[in-house]
Simulated scan of single mutants.
Amino acid sequence: MNRQNMTLFGLMLSTILFCSSAWAKLTDTPPFYLVEYQGKTAYLLGSVHLGKPDFYPLPKKIEQAFNESNTLVVEALPDQNTNNLILKSQTASTLPKTKSAKYIQFCELHLLVCQAIEHLPMWMQAAQITLYRLIHFGYHPDLGIDMHFINRAKNKHKAQLESMEYQLTLLNSIDKKTQRQMIDEAITTPNDELEDLFIAWRQGDSEKISSVIKQSMNKNNNTDLLDKLVWKRNKPMSDGIIRLMKNTKAGTSIFVVIGAGHLEGDHSVNHYLKQAGAHVKSVWKKP
């Protein structure tokens, strides 16, 4: 699976959090947790799926934890079958004959973009439009946090908490009305709202991250999308982390990278880890 296709999944899985501004690395404190369970250790990093060169090097504590770990764990690892799955999904959900005024106006200005993506499922079109906008701000999927560690984990064991096939099936199951709304929101979301997300991730502002995720997916007091794409996935991912920790040799650690939106709030991965008996604390906060 190529890197751009991999980004399609991350962009629409509540993990669309990116960084901005060339701040000094000493000020960066993205969501990063130490998890301890029955004498075993894991480091849990909230990820973003696009990046800029000034993201790197990441803070020393993150790099050190990765270097000392023997296993990298991500939401989903690309495999040879993923491209085939994406190709099969291309006819799953195209735009309806009646297009919104927002979409028509966008395509008048960006005709080549719309022609290139019109055969894709609607949720994927929304992801590509978002990607198109952010590339103009200097972001790129090759520099996303997930890809950064996958590319560096050649000598480490790699594990996944879900799969690309599962994520693709989940996204294709979103109802058509909601997918059309995704496209309109990808077109009209103001730049300053994206900037709020960037700053929140880079500062590790968990309350802001949780608030923005809820606002973006909870339309008209309808939490169906939030429940499907975020909350219902968090308990299985938490269970997967606990299972991997149990199988880790004493004296070693695992390094887990999942979307930052999955780590914050009452239904978060961290919440379920604590319920399972794990001790979870921010690496940045002193006892």
Rank of each mutant, 00 (worst) to 15 (best):
D79R: 03
D79L: 02
N81M: 07
Q105W: 00
L72Y: 04
L72V: 06
P96N: 13
Q64I: 08
M122C: 06
L112V: 06
P141G: 04
N83Y: 06
L77N: 06
Q80R: 11
M122P: 00
A65D: 10
A101T: 15
L109H: 12
Q128C: 08
A116Y: 03
L77W: 03
L58S: 01
K97R: 09
A76K: 01
E108S: 12
G138Y: 03
A126W: 05
F66N: 05
N84E: 14
F66E: 10
M124N: 09
S69R: 04
L72I: 08
L134P: 00
L72C: 05
L58V: 06
T98D: 15
C114G: 09
A126F: 05
K97E: 15
N84G: 11
G138F: 03
E118I: 10
T82N: 05
Y56M: 07
K102M: 06
L112H: 10
K97A: 11
L72S: 05
I62N: 02
T94P: 01
K60T: 12
Q80G: 02
T130K: 05
K102W: 00
D142Y: 09
L112W: 00
L131A: 12
E108P: 00
T98M: 13
W123V: 13
E63I: 05
I104Q: 13
Q80W: 10
N67Y: 11
H119I: 14
V113L: 07
D79E: 13
G138Q: 07
K102P: 00
L95E: 12
K60A: 12
I117G: 02
L111W: 00
G144M: 07
L85I: 07
H136C: 02
V73A: 06
E75Q: 10
A126Q: 10
P121H: 04
T71W: 02
Q105C: 01
L87I: 15
C107M: 07
N70G: 05
N83M: 11
K88C: 02
Q128V: 12
E118Y: 00
L87F: 06
Q90P: 00
R133P: 00
A65F: 07
H136G: 13
Q128Y: 08
A101H: 08
S69H: 08
S89I: 03
D142T: 13
H119W: 01
Y132V: 03
V113I: 14
K97T: 11
V73T: 06
K88E: 14
C114N: 07
F106N: 08
L77P: 00
E108W: 02
M122N: 08
N70W: 00
L109N: 13
K88A: 15
L131N: 14
C107W: 03
Q80K: 11
I117Q: 03
T94C: 08
Y56T: 06
C107I: 12
K97Q: 12
T71M: 10
I135Q: 15
K88G: 04
I104R: 07
H119R: 12
N70M: 02
I135K: 14
Y56L: 08
D79M: 02
L87S: 13
H110D: 13
M124P: 00
K60S: 08
L143H: 09
V73I: 11
I129E: 07
A116V: 03
C114E: 06
